[in-house]
Design a protein around this nucleic acid. Structure first.
Lengths: 202, 202
DNA sequence: TGTTTTATTGAACAGTGTTCAATAAATTTG
DNA sequence: CAAATTTATTGAACACTGTTCAATAAAACA
């Protein structure tokens, strides 16, 4: 079955090539401004043929969506080296924000853009769930060490995530212009430190 | 000049009629899924004629964007009756979140959707600025009464806004599905109460 | 009654996602 | 090797999009 194997490899290569072209255009122009013809053009291919490898535009998007989550999860790996749960929690936020800063376009695809998400169980959503579980676990560890007393861990997790996401979302949708005289970097990082200061008193 | 006056009134009426149709479709389907032909159809009008009253689709959007901010600012009016700055701050957040819950579609238009925003000085942006100034003022008042000691008011304002927005944005972009067994209402309100609990300890 | 604004229309243009018959290329079968 | 079959590719077509614009109708003014 050497031929069939090679066939499949070739198919995967084409799949990758489309994805590479799509990644460039998607991250450059966002979901709506990316067209199948753009993608096809980028890799000198015909628009119709893309549908031989992907069901539709949304499926390509979801592939990148998943890709983004893998990237993020990878960045979070270093947290294993942080023993203290509260320190780990704080580092988690910093990495999350750094990720949004470094990968504004991925962040948009992952957390802001909404396209027909027929099945939430697929793609990056599973990984998102895992990431949230990780966050939840850290928080519970913190509570076992006496922090965040009397807080419901579920709601507390949601609140922490909201705060992190809020900082990143304002940045990624260019809603920081109202804060004149501060760079986005300053806003995000010092804003986060303010939040950490709140946590520290709790 | 009675005729000219009537003429202008008629023009304003058409303007309004278009906006009414647009509002319905925009809030129903969002920015991208709303087409000029949809709007025209809604009010039994021709697509081309809309351009006699509006420069382009984006201009109609900005009108609704502004409308949304007026709605929000109106809701915030009741805060004048709250004397204590910290109580006012807490109420502010509650109203903000309630607004997002009640006007999910407006919230999307106002804070999440991004379309070619050529001139940030126009439309709802000015009002957004005012709302932020209001928030900033409340926080400074709180600090004068001894709260939030040692916090930079600018960054602290940004952080508070981020936390509020994060809660609303996760809700409005349907990113709350990871928290199973809790309704959106519970998540948003109890999530917010968690945040308030943090503030209270500061 | 002209003449000139003002408003409306529908066709047209270039673009979109997607489908599909025709075609070419590669592989398997006889 | 030749024929049949599978696999891959194409470009045209469909129904849609925002926007423009010449033609036209309606209203206001002279």
């Amino acid at each position: 079955m050497g031929i069939a194997e090679r066939k499949q490899e070739e198919k995967q290569e084409m799949h990758k090539r489309i994805l590479t072209g799509a990644r460039k255009i998607f991250l450059e122009k966002g979901y709506e401004q990316t067209s199948m013809r753009n993608i096809a053009n980028e890799i000198n291919y015909s628009p119709g043929s893309i549908y031989f490898y992907f069901k539709d535009k949304s499926e390509i998007f979801h592939e990148l969506h998943k890709e983004g989550f893998h990237l993020l999860v990878n960045q979070l790996k270093v947290l294993n080296k942080v023993a203290d749960p509260f320190e780990r929690l704080k580092a988690m936020g910093r990495i999350f924000i750094q990720f949004a800063k470094d990968n504004k376009d991925y962040y948009n695809l992952m957390f802001i853009v909404d396209e027909p998400q027929k099945v939430p169980e697929t793609g990056g959503f599973k990984i998102a769930q895992e990431a949230i579980n990780q966050l939840s676990a850290v928080i519970k560890e913190c509570q076992q060490k006496g922090r965040f007393k009397g807080m419901d861990p579920e709601y507390f997790t949601f609140m922490i995530l909201s705060a992190m996401h809020g900082i990143c979302a304002l940045f990624c949708t260019d809603r920081t212009t109202s804060f004149v005289g501060k760079t986005n970097d300053e806003l995000m990082h010092h804003g986060y430190e303010c939040f950490v200061a709140l946590l520290e008193k709790s």
